[in-house]
Amino acid sequence: MASSSAFLDVARVHKRFARVHAVADISLAVAPGEIFALLGPNGAGKSTLLRMLVGITRPDEGRIQWPTMPGGQLPGVQLGYLPEDRGLYQDMPLIAVLTYFGSLRGLAPRDAQQAGERWLDRLELLPRAKDKVGSLSKGNQQKVQFAAAVLHRPRCAILDEPFSGLDPLNQELFLGLVRDLRAEGTTVILSAHQMSLVERLADRVFVMQHGREVLAGTMPEIRERWGTGVRLILTVDGTAAGVGSQTEALAAIAAHPAVVGVSRGEDAAVVIALARGQHVGDLMALCASRLSIVSVRTEQPSLHDVYIDVVGTAAPATPAEAA
């Protein structure tokens, strides 16, 4: 993406701690109104990068700019932040906490209270508005935390691991909430480990490992650039005639020029990874002649597959990075 049209422009940013190069030469751009997902294993530097975007820490080198904002800086009132390391005032009522955070984000106290009540209603917690935060379950506290981060309708919401610790139903709820934010015009930058959710949610992903970028782009771009292509999944009848030669059949299939790999999947499935841009007509004929095929389907590589493939094979960290 061209930096000139970016909402956020990060250029060659580095952050080092005592013996760790936590963020190494990261450059990225985020478009206005998109959902941008940061991915990476634990310790990849995602939270460090997000803290720098929020302004809690500063880069040692490089530049973080918000080109559309005056002076290239995003005012605190335009920012919503859900930290990975999160908590709330346990001894205070829900509505008081939301009003307080809304006020600090620039809302008038009455507006902050009304916004807090709207969010509690949306999260089905309005009847408990005057209960103390400590009386809520962990999942409900996380909902309140989310509301506290965005109730002032920020231009940009930075959400560090918003789905962690949530049950599947609440993950779906949060998915909807994040989509709603985007629909309201908020740019969302999030980090997550839940690949299937990110795949459904993010406009673009950025994968980090050992503080460095390992891949970035939209899902189609990532599949195109990093994926192993479409996979052909054949369910075969292992008891049918000619089964004894299945190993030979798989070897013959693997030798076909349109195939980059063959493996046995679950439930008597044969998974054939196809090379990009190859015709598969004669491959299908070969499979039909050597295997007793019960069903056929194709599958796009998932983000999970790409992630495991790329992160699993990424270069090891330098001694300084690995420290």
Binding site: V54, Y81, L88, Q145, A148
Partner: peptide
């Protein structure tokens, strides 16, 4: 202890 600090420091 209650892990409120980061949220606060993003605001003030």
């Amino acid at each position: 202890q209650q892990r409120i600090t980061e949220q606060m420091l993003s605001m003030v």
